[in-house]
Simulated assay, not measured.
Amino acid sequence: AISDYMDLAVLGDYYTNGSFGLRLENTYAKRYRFRGNLAFRYENLITSERGFPDYARNTIYNLRWSHSQDSKANPSSRFSASVNLGSSTYYRNSINQINAGSNYLTNTLSSSVSYSKTFEGEPQVNYSLTATHSQNTNTQTINMTLPTFQGSVGRMYPFASKSGSKKGIIQNINLQYNVRGENRIATVDSLFFKKEMFDDARAGFQHTIPISTNFKVFKHFSVSAGANYNEVWTFKTIDKRFNTVLGEEEVETINGFDAYRTYNFSTSIGTTVYGMFNFEKEGKDTKLKAIRHVMRPSISYNINPAFDKYYNTYEEEVITADGLTTRDVEFSRFEDAIFGAPNKNFSSSMGISLA
């Protein structure tokens, strides 16, 4: 043991053709705080003899890490890890079968490392950071989020006093704030941990602010109204054009900050109706005296505006029965953004319900 809190085992394999392997295994724990284990395995594999046509040299590795925090350590923050990553061919090519074991048929490696923190108060603030990894050992494709950030600010009543009940449309106005940021990476095994793996990375942030209020009208009717504001940031957009020489669409990636903003509205009005149906009759004693019933009718209306200002068009040449002609092709520069493109069609709806 290295100390009272951790141990370390170093193991190795060596083969007469020059192949070798190294294994590091570590377990650690601190009472009422955390515990975990770490294992790293590396092999340098040599096939055949130098000078022969089938001579090959290959390196494979695998990293496993598990970490958990004791629930008593810190109620306002949490850290956990479950990692299994490495060479896609590790479990199939490892010379030491102890390393492969029951994992020989494994075709997916996945990892997740997360940290979350809560700040108590009015309003409550939360945030979390998560890194994930998913690896297909058959296709050798790797998808990662490095990292995902989420934050939120609890419900606030900016026009109401901190004590007493809230009355009226103004005092009941409340809002929240949510943010989500992602950096997504799609790569292959041969580029893992190399700078090229970041070439096609996509990053963005989405900010959401829901605002709502409620109040009474004509004493018996409850009205609620709300709006949602959404703002998306991205660091890559696209531009499309038609190449008349090649006769095909060209897509250009534009690096740089860009953003779009959307919003929608909703409102509803409802009431509660109470009634009583009596079964009692004069001179008769019935077991069923009365039935009390409650009805809650409501009407709602929603509006989703169109945001076609974020859309462009280009002319595409097409061959028809009448010969060569052109047509307009519509696109949004945010099509490939992490959180998609804004809605370009206006819609509204009305609903009637009785509960």
Rank of each mutant, 00 (worst) to 15 (best):
residue 63 L to R: 05
residue 267 T to Y: 15
residue 223 V to I: 02
residue 332 S to L: 00
residue 350 M to T: 14
residue 75 P to S: 06
residue 94 S to I: 09
residue 81 A to R: 03
residue 151 G to K: 10
residue 332 S to C: 03
residue 337 A to Q: 02
residue 88 S to N: 12
residue 273 V to A: 11
residue 233 W to Y: 00
residue 24 L to K: 10
residue 253 T to H: 09
residue 229 Y to F: 11
residue 116 S to L: 00
residue 245 V to T: 13
residue 40 F to S: 02
residue 64 R to H: 07
residue 232 V to Q: 09
residue 110 S to V: 04
residue 217 V to I: 15
residue 67 H to W: 11
residue 88 S to V: 04
residue 343 N to C: 07
residue 101 G to D: 14
residue 216 K to W: 06
residue 154 G to P: 05
residue 81 A to C: 02
residue 86 G to Q: 04
residue 272 T to E: 10
residue 229 Y to G: 10
residue 283 G to D: 09
residue 12 G to K: 10
residue 198 F to Y: 11
residue 271 T to A: 13
residue 245 V to G: 00
residue 77 S to M: 03
residue 131 A to S: 08
residue 286 T to I: 05
residue 11 L to W: 03
residue 151 G to N: 04
residue 224 S to Y: 01
residue 84 N to L: 05
residue 56 A to S: 12
residue 98 I to P: 01
residue 182 E to D: 10
residue 244 T to N: 01
residue 229 Y to T: 05
residue 326 T to Y: 02
residue 138 N to S: 15
residue 327 R to Y: 08
residue 341 A to R: 15
residue 302 N to S: 11
residue 115 Y to P: 02
residue 147 P to Q: 07
residue 139 T to R: 13
residue 99 N to C: 12
residue 224 S to N: 15
residue 316 E to R: 13
residue 48 S to H: 00
residue 41 R to H: 01
residue 25 E to V: 08
residue 208 T to H: 12
residue 302 N to Y: 08
residue 128 S to D: 06
residue 224 S to W: 05
residue 155 R to S: 10
residue 233 W to I: 00
residue 53 P to W: 03
residue 68 S to C: 00
residue 208 T to W: 12
residue 262 T to V: 14
residue 299 I to A: 10
residue 355 A to I: 00
residue 291 I to R: 03
residue 61 Y to H: 07
residue 294 V to T: 14
residue 82 S to A: 08
residue 337 A to T: 13
residue 167 K to A: 12
residue 89 T to S: 15
residue 307 F to Q: 10
residue 182 E to Q: 04
residue 126 N to D: 15
residue 102 S to K: 13
residue 182 E to L: 04
residue 33 R to M: 06
residue 264 N to W: 13
residue 288 L to C: 01
residue 329 V to N: 08
residue 98 I to F: 14
residue 58 N to I: 04
residue 220 H to K: 13
residue 344 K to W: 09
residue 53 P to T: 01
residue 166 K to S: 10
residue 240 K to G: 01
residue 41 R to Y: 06
residue 144 M to R: 09
residue 308 D to P: 02
residue 2 I to V: 05
residue 115 Y to E: 02
residue 254 I to K: 11
residue 299 I to Q: 13
residue 222 S to V: 02
residue 237 T to F: 03
residue 144 M to F: 08
residue 266 S to Q: 14
residue 64 R to G: 03
residue 282 E to T: 02
residue 282 E to S: 01
residue 137 T to R: 15
residue 186 A to E: 04
residue 317 E to R: 08
residue 183 N to E: 00
residue 243 N to Q: 14
residue 30 K to T: 09
residue 238 I to K: 05
residue 318 V to Y: 04
residue 122 E to S: 12
residue 49 E to T: 05
residue 340 G to H: 08
residue 155 R to E: 14
residue 239 D to G: 13
residue 322 D to E: 04
residue 78 R to Y: 12
residue 173 I to K: 06
residue 56 A to D: 14
residue 68 S to G: 09
residue 208 T to Y: 09
residue 101 G to P: 03
residue 111 S to I: 05
residue 120 E to M: 06
residue 259 A to P: 07
residue 83 V to G: 06
residue 32 Y to N: 15
residue 231 E to I: 01
residue 224 S to R: 07
residue 99 N to H: 14
residue 212 S to H: 08
residue 64 R to L: 11
residue 284 K to C: 01
residue 207 H to L: 10
residue 169 I to S: 14
residue 324 L to T: 12
residue 54 D to Q: 02
residue 280 E to K: 08
residue 51 G to F: 01
residue 321 A to C: 06
residue 267 T to I: 07
